[in-house]
Amino acid sequence: MTALKKRTLIQLAVASAVAAALAGCGKKEEPAPAPAAAPAASAPVAEAPPPKPEPLKIAFAYLGPVGDGGWTFAHDNGRKALEKELGDKIVTSFVENVPESADAERVFRDMVGQGNKLVFGTTFGYMEPMLKVAADSKDIKFENATSYKTAENVRTYDSRTYEGAYMAGVIAGSMTKTNVLGIVGSVPIPEVIRNIDSFTLGAQSVNPKIKTKVVWVNEWFSPPKETEAATSLINGGADILFQNTDSSAVLKTAESKGKRAFGWDSDMAAYGPKAHLASSIINWGPYYIKATKDALDGKWATGQAWWGVKEGAIDIVSIADDVPAATKTKIDEIKKGLADGSFSIWKGPIMGQNGKEVVAKDAVADDAFLQGINFYVKGVEGKVPGGK
């Protein structure tokens, strides 16, 4: 092989090697990037729940202390039933020992100032102060127990306590040994006189020989005066006592003197277990619940409500074991009749203390008549204070 050919072959080999090297060192081609994914659709934003309505603020004005065991205790039990029923829809508060005087006006104005939108006054004597405050507070709803005057933002409510008084009378008439019953009266208004008469009518329905004596204390809650009055009645021959006052003093007095008596407004059996014949109670819970629901639902309107056995507002409870079975059966029949309307307490003939007919035979006294009673029925001794 000639030198020229040998050199040519070497050059070709070198060229091939260089080409191969250059090919091995060449930059790799990167794969094309994948197309970017479309952004995910954003989740819908939940709407914020509507703000929770503010609870309805409700205030109660009490005549006596919540621990009186009677009238005020019953109202406060009604307030507690209201709280249990409506929970966080409401907020309640109360002021106890509010007198039936100009001071009641100050309390009602303070309740309004604290933002209460529904105000309950639990006694007759708050009527005028409440009306005065209501006239200046048209956006507030007021309710007054046992009174009779209303306004566009004032409603009245009451319980037919005379139904419980009548049933207590039936028991008393069947249990007395002296045929003399004693009654401690509070304030001589139609409500109280009606209860005295109804108690007497109930007793006479089973024992026509019954006479009742009344001692007035001219206060709703005064344990010392109630005790004094009860003692006077016992000394006057009464062996069974009834009351239209707010404390348990009458029952306690009967217990201490070996006589019998009734609880009033609340179950007072524990205050005098040996003396206790039964308790005529008021359940304010159903009414307070209805009135508050009316306010919450925008259905509240002025008017007058008067609830009794039919509405579950009045009952007689804890009847003593020694009360005859026949009497207990009669009480059950009266309750049933009052509930379904087949029995009327004030059905004639009924005679007044002076012997004149006040309700004609077979006639039934209407509510207007009952709410204006200012006389004693036959069998009640003494004179109605302020009466003619």
Rank of each mutant, 00 (worst) to 15 (best):
T2A: 13
R7A: 15
I10H: 07
A15F: 12
A17S: 13
A17N: 09
V18Q: 07
K27Y: 09
E30Y: 09
P33N: 06
A37D: 10
S42I: 12
S42W: 07
S42T: 15
E47Y: 11
A48N: 09
P53H: 10
E54P: 01
R79E: 10
L82D: 01
E83P: 00
K84G: 14
D88K: 07
T92D: 04
E96Q: 15
V98H: 01
P99H: 07
E105R: 12
Q114K: 15
V119M: 08
F120M: 01
M127P: 01
S147R: 00
K149W: 11
V154S: 01
T156S: 12
S159M: 14
Y162D: 00
E163F: 05
G164W: 02
M167Y: 08
A168G: 14
G169N: 06
M175G: 00
V180A: 10
V184K: 04
G185H: 03
N195E: 14
S198Q: 06
T200V: 13
Q204F: 04
S205F: 12
K209P: 04
V214N: 00
P223F: 02
P224T: 11
K225F: 10
T227W: 02
A230H: 06
G236S: 15
G237H: 07
D239E: 08
I240R: 07
I240Y: 03
T245M: 04
S247G: 09
A249E: 08
K252T: 12
K252W: 05
T253V: 13
E255N: 08
A261P: 01
F262D: 00
S266V: 09
K274H: 13
S279R: 02
G285H: 03
P286E: 05
Y287P: 02
I289M: 06
D297Q: 12
Q304G: 10
W307N: 12
W307Q: 13
K310H: 06
G312R: 13
D315Q: 12
S318T: 13
I319N: 02
D321K: 15
P324C: 13
K328H: 09
K330E: 06
I331A: 03
I334W: 09
F343S: 00
Q353Y: 05
V359K: 03
A363H: 07
A368S: 13
N374L: 11
V377L: 08
K388H: 11
